[in-house]
């Protein structure tokens, strides 16, 4: 089973992030409200440009159509669905599967690119 129960839905902070530890990996989990609907995103917590585990503490928002988090260190933006850095497209952070079940937040420890290649 790759899905792991991380925390209660109430532990998430609306329009902001928290961090979970899963098999030694730090994962940033964000709760956003999009047109009245709540949406959860999960990406790596490590900022490869600032070289520190800080992305869960960044500000979330949108740039054009893209939903992003801005690193609190040097303010680069990372797309929450693709993991791509807007300022330096060659830099991509891992994106994780996340789901809400019976009021609990579940994470899939497998990075989505691995999932894709495995499929």
């Amino acid at each position: 089973m790759a899905w792991t129960d991380i925390c209660a839905f109430e532990d998430l902070v609306e329009n902001s992030g928290i961090c979970a530890l899963l098999n030694g990996q730090q994962i940033a989990v964000f709760l956003l409200e999009l047109q009245g609907e709540q949406q959860i995103y999960a990406v790596g917590n490590y900022d490869p440009l600032g070289k520190a585990n800080v992305l869960s503490r960044g500000i979330v928002g949108s740039v054009g159509e893209q939903i992003v988090v801005a690193s609190p260190l040097y303010k680069q933006h990372f797309d929450l669905t693709s993991g791509q850095c807007l300022e330096q497209p060659e830099v991509v952070i891992p994106v994780y599967g996340v789901k809400l079940q019976q009021g609990r937040v579940w994470l899939n420890a497998i990075k989505q690119d691995q999932q894709a290649s495995a499929a």
Partner: peptide
């Protein structure tokens, strides 16, 4: 306060200054 949390830079959120290593 809850509606303002997501508005703040990390420094304001955690009421401290983030350094280079987090």
């Amino acid at each position: 306060k809850k509606p303002h949390v997501g508005l703040q830079d990390t420094n304001d959120t955690f009421l401290a200054n983030m350094q280079k290593d987090g």
